[in-house]
Simulated assay, not measured.
Amino acid sequence: MAIEINQTVKILFEVKIDGVVVDGSRSKKPFEFNYGVGQLIPGLEKRIVNMKAGEAAEILVPAAEAYGEYDENAVQTLPLAQFDDIADLKIGMQVQGEDEDGQPIQFTVKEITATTVTIDLNHPLAGKDIEYKIKIDSLM
């Protein structure tokens, strides 16, 4: 039986970015999720829909169907004073914040000068194709 919307699926997986393993089922304990409700990136859900329990596959999800293409317009330079409440601000730091409407956002600090901070609002994996090794452990 193929996977159905809202069905509980357990998978064993390995994730590679640029050929380097970055995540996976290290403990050999399956990752459990409900299919079709946004718990996985769209490109992966789309590619496993016809898989059955016990089936394995190597899947490449292009950036556009994962975390999106990298958007240069999502890089902004702001006054350093806006970051006074962040102790030990460092390049590469990922920061949780709020936008003008009070909605949560996450960004990465790209550059710090004496008067400004350049931030990147892109997801850290934006612009990256993602390679998966997947095995459907069970469908419930």
Rank of each mutant, 00 (worst) to 15 (best):
M1R: 13
M1W: 04
N6I: 09
N6V: 12
Q7E: 15
Q7H: 12
T8S: 14
K10I: 03
K10E: 14
I11C: 13
I11G: 11
F13Y: 15
F13A: 02
E14H: 04
V15D: 00
K16Y: 07
I17T: 08
V20I: 15
V22I: 15
V22H: 09
S25K: 07
R26K: 13
R26S: 10
S27N: 14
S27P: 01
K28W: 12
P30I: 10
F31N: 10
F33Y: 13
F33S: 02
F33A: 01
N34R: 15
Y35N: 02
Y35T: 02
V37T: 14
G38R: 04
Q39W: 05
Q39I: 03
L40Y: 08
L40W: 07
P42M: 09
G43F: 06
V49D: 05
K52N: 06
E58S: 11
E58L: 02
L60R: 04
L60G: 00
V61Y: 02
V61W: 01
P62L: 11
A64V: 13
A66G: 11
Y67E: 05
G68F: 03
G68Y: 03
G68T: 08
G68D: 06
E69M: 09
Y70N: 05
E72S: 12
N73S: 14
N73Y: 05
N73A: 13
N73F: 05
A74T: 00
A74N: 10
V75M: 13
T77H: 07
P79L: 10
L80C: 06
A81W: 03
Q82P: 00
F83G: 10
D84Q: 13
D84S: 15
D85I: 04
I86E: 01
A87P: 02
L89W: 01
I91N: 05
I91D: 02
Q94L: 09
V95Q: 09
Q96D: 13
D99K: 10
D101R: 11
G102E: 03
P104D: 12
P104T: 07
P104K: 09
I105T: 11
Q106T: 14
F107S: 00
K110A: 12
E111C: 01
T113K: 01
T113E: 03
T115Y: 06
T115M: 03
T116I: 00
T116G: 00
I119C: 04
I119G: 03
I119M: 04
L121A: 05
L121P: 01
N122F: 08
H123F: 07
P124N: 08
P124C: 08
L125I: 02
L125D: 07
A126H: 02
K128L: 04
I130A: 01
Y132L: 06
I136H: 03
S138Y: 06
S138R: 07
L139N: 04
M140R: 12
